[in-house]
Simulated scan of single mutants.
Amino acid sequence: MKRRRGFVQLAILHLLDEEPKHGYQIMKELEYRSGGFYSASAGTVYPALQELMEQEMIELLPDTGKKIYSLGVRGRTRLTEHSNKKKSDFWEDWKARWEWQNSEEATQLKEVIDQWENELRKAIKASRKDKDSTSRLIEFIQDTTNQLQKEIQKKGEET
């Protein structure tokens, strides 16, 4: 959840870099930029705005009657740091992320992860009674982690 909020915060900074906006405009623009795959809620956007305010990355424009947010100096610095790390277009990544999260593959992956978590909890509970079982479970998890790391590394070498 925190990772998603961080991505939303970064998106908000990008929007405010274009021009000051109020919360509803931000929500609508985030949805538009995702191609309709992401529907920003007040429960996500307003806490993200509050955190960005607390971090002094954004500020309210004075004397506007509405809460209009603008990018602060720290927010501009954060955007510069991000753009130095990533060479791809933020909004292309934003849209691709939400398209993927709404894909059949992502749905299947979430289902398999849920099954994995349930079985892992059962295995942990069962292993509490037997130290050998616990050792085997630890070894299994370490082997699985190593396989995932190798797969990630292999994919990184392919790109």
Rank of each mutant, 00 (worst) to 15 (best):
R3S: 13
R5N: 12
K2H: 14
L79I: 07
I124P: 11
T44H: 00
G75C: 03
I124N: 05
A11V: 12
T159A: 10
T77D: 11
I141Q: 10
G156L: 12
T134E: 04
S41G: 10
K129N: 09
L13E: 05
E56I: 09
E151I: 13
L61I: 10
L52M: 06
Q55G: 01
E104L: 12
A40P: 00
P20K: 08
E92P: 07
G72D: 02
Q55H: 00
K21W: 02
M1I: 15
E81G: 02
E117M: 06
T80Y: 05
Q108C: 08
Y38I: 05
L137Y: 05
E158T: 05
R121Q: 12
L109T: 11
S135T: 04
E51I: 02
M53A: 04
F37C: 13
P47A: 04
G6D: 15
L60H: 04
K85I: 15
L71T: 04
E19P: 00
D89I: 12
K150T: 14
I26L: 02
E139V: 11
W98T: 10
I68Y: 01
E92K: 07
I68C: 00
L79W: 03
I141N: 07
F140Q: 14
K110D: 12
D132M: 01
S103D: 09
R78L: 09
P62R: 15
F90D: 01
R128V: 12
T145R: 01
I138D: 10
F7D: 14
R76L: 13
Q147C: 07
L52Y: 06
I68M: 02
Y32R: 10
W94S: 07
Q149L: 15
Q101F: 11
S39R: 11
S133K: 02
P20L: 03
I152A: 09
K67Y: 09
S127E: 10
E51N: 06
Q149K: 12
K155D: 08
H14N: 08
K66P: 00
P62E: 15
T145A: 03
E151C: 06
Y24T: 13
Q147I: 10
K125R: 11
I138C: 07
L52H: 05
F37K: 08
N146M: 12
T80C: 00
S127H: 06
F90I: 04
P62N: 13
E139Q: 07
R4L: 15
R136Y: 07
E54A: 08
R33A: 11
I152T: 09
K28H: 06
E18T: 00
W100H: 15
E81W: 01
K85R: 14
T64H: 11
G6T: 10
L49K: 02
W98P: 15
F140K: 14
E99R: 06
E56C: 02
Q25D: 06
D114T: 13
H82D: 00
L71I: 14
T145M: 04
S83E: 06
I12F: 06
D17N: 06
I12T: 08
K154Y: 05
R97H: 11
E139A: 12
D130L: 03
Y46R: 09
Q147R: 12
E56M: 05
S83P: 01
K129C: 08
K21S: 06
A40R: 00
M27F: 03
R121Y: 15
R33M: 11
R5E: 15
R33I: 13
Y38M: 02
E117Y: 02
S88R: 05
R128P: 01
Q153E: 15
K131C: 00
I26W: 02
K110A: 15
P62K: 15
S70K: 09
